[in-house]
Amino acid sequence: MSREFGELILDLQNVSLAFGGVKALTDISFDVREHEIRAIIGPNGAGKSSMLNVINGVYRPQQGEIILRGQHFTRMNPYKAACAGISRTFQNIALFKGMSVIDNLMTGRNLKIRSNLLQQAFWWGPARREELAHRARVEEVIDFLEIQHIRKTPVGRLPYGLQKRVDLGRALAMEPSILLLDEPMAGMNVEEKQDMCRFILDVNDQFGTTIVLIEHDMGVVMDISDRVVVLDYGRKIGDGVPDAVRTNPEVISAYLGASH
């Protein structure tokens, strides 16, 4: 399978992040090309989630730069990242538990809402029209993820696998150009994993979304990703196509283990 990649879309240069004396990331550089699926792997505590948090501005690195489509950011914040088209899912699902599935996905449309508070209070023309238009877009996401039957259920009542899917849906509702997925398949059974893989590949394929993915299931990672970064104790120990990473001796000793 040959895949076409575009320009460099996201480039991290010499990023270091520390919490007091604990060094979470040390001098890490890697890049992401448009339309590719880029995986980040590594043992627990390697700094994978911190990496995603740096990319979308939840954490501020002490050193290093993030270059997004040629634009330099030394101080990213979540709002800027969202405006720049980065959306993400969370490792331990961070859905809005008291709201229905539809409302959760509708919050993903928040940045595209133009009507003001007064218009919304009076359900005035623009606010109403906008609400309907965004609802239609959200329904497309619902169809895509095959969650029509639960659209009005409060997410707190859903089983784990479906919550993960709604979490992905909320990120998709933002129509992101870069999608960060933090362990989208953790805790899932084989069928749910297969579904999730299908959704990730379809998103990448149909919408051309660039995907940065953290995952522990090596079968999945090696199968669907185009390039893989390996972290260990906050350092980068490997980077390249899955086959190259699989045979890298440093990666094998730190994470993959020798095959018996």
Binding site: A82, C83, R88, A94, F96, M99, N110
Partner: peptide, 13 residues
């Protein structure tokens, strides 16, 4: 969204 999960709300913009 702010009530239920403020970090996620911020990430969404």
């Amino acid at each position: 969204a702010i009530r239920d999960m403020d970090v996620a709300a911020e990430v969404i913009g």
